Simulated assay, not measured.
Amino acid sequence: MLRSLSTAVTFLAAFAIAGPASAAEWQEGTHYRELSSPVRTDNSETIEVAEVFWYGCPHCYNFKPLVESWAEDIPDDVDYIKIPAALGQSWEPHARAFYALESMGELDKVHDALFDALARDRRPLNSGEALAAFVSDHDVDGEAFLKAYNSFGVNAKMQKAQSKIRGARITGTPTMLVNGKYTVSASMAGSHEAALEVVDYLVEQERGAAD
Rank of each mutant, 00 (worst) to 15 (best):
R3V: 15
F11H: 06
A14V: 14
A14Q: 08
F15K: 02
A16L: 13
A18R: 06
G19K: 13
P20M: 07
P20E: 10
A24H: 14
G29H: 00
T30M: 06
R33A: 05
L35N: 03
T46N: 08
I47T: 08
A50H: 09
W54V: 09
W54C: 04
G56K: 00
C57E: 09
C60N: 07
Y61M: 05
P65D: 10
L66S: 12
E68S: 11
E72P: 04
E72N: 10
I74T: 15
P75Y: 05
L87Q: 05
Q89F: 12
W91Q: 03
E92V: 14
E92D: 08
A95H: 10
A97D: 02
S103C: 03
M104F: 14
G105H: 02
E106N: 07
D108S: 15
D108G: 10
A119H: 12
R120T: 12
R120S: 14
D121P: 02
P124A: 01
V135F: 01
V135L: 05
H138G: 05
H138W: 06
V140E: 08
D141Y: 01
D141G: 02
F145R: 00
K147N: 01
A148L: 09
A148R: 13
N150T: 15
N155G: 11
A156F: 02
K157V: 04
Q159H: 13
K160T: 15
A161S: 14
R166A: 15
G172H: 05
P174Q: 09
P174K: 10
L177R: 01
G180W: 11
Y182T: 09
S185V: 10
S187F: 14
M188K: 13
A189F: 11
G190N: 13
G190T: 14
S191N: 02
S191Q: 04
E193V: 15
A195Y: 13
L196N: 02
V199G: 06
Y201H: 15
Y201N: 07
V203D: 01
E204A: 10
E204G: 00
E206H: 12
G208C: 04
A209W: 10
A210I: 07
D211R: 10
